[in-house]
Amino acid sequence: MIAALKNKSKWQRYFKSLKFALYCLTHPLDGFWDLTHEKRGTYAAANTILILTLLARVMGLRFTSFVIKPLYWEELNMFTYIASILFPLALWVIGNWALTTLFDGKGRLGQVYMATCYAIAPYPLIQFPLMIFSNFVTVDEVGFYNMVNVVSLVWAVFLIIFAMQQIHEFGPGKNILFTIASIFAMLVILFILMLFFSMISQGIAYFISLGRELLFRL
């Protein structure tokens, strides 16, 4: 473990792959092709971007000006707040992979994950400076903040769509079709999850009532 940490070439590759995310921002088609086909992306970098995204979101709660985002701390649940990013991400990755793998998609599960993480890079990149900027804003100037905020989201969405196209080696039309289909796949997974959850909770409730009954009798 420590030996791996001391390995200088690994660090170099990590930083190089992280820097490659910046290239993908401006050259999505070229960048995401090279990401998997030229092996220029690493999981370490993808995880880093994801962690930065989560960090931007959580830190935004505290450090964004109250003029823009007044926060009712009593109602905030940090775990569900973080899950509100991780859970849709997991659904997207699994749903997209499960669907595209049936229709000649070349991307593997890990590659879909990596490409998606690289594609959300605009979010932390814009949100961190925006967080600082928000503290110098009056109510009349909130429009500027909102505009940049929307840019960070729209940019990320476009990158995700382009990334999937390059990962799976799809044409533009097929890509759009499968992007929409993936969203439906997410809904199906959600439905099945809820079905299982309610069944399992009913199963547990059965054992609980059984235990109660036993306690009464004994």
Partner: peptide
């Protein structure tokens, strides 16, 4: 499993 189910039932009861 039995012990686990019992433990849950005790906590759920309070």
């Amino acid at each position: 499993i039995a012990a686990f189910a019992l433990a849950i039932s005790v906590f759920a009861g309070s």
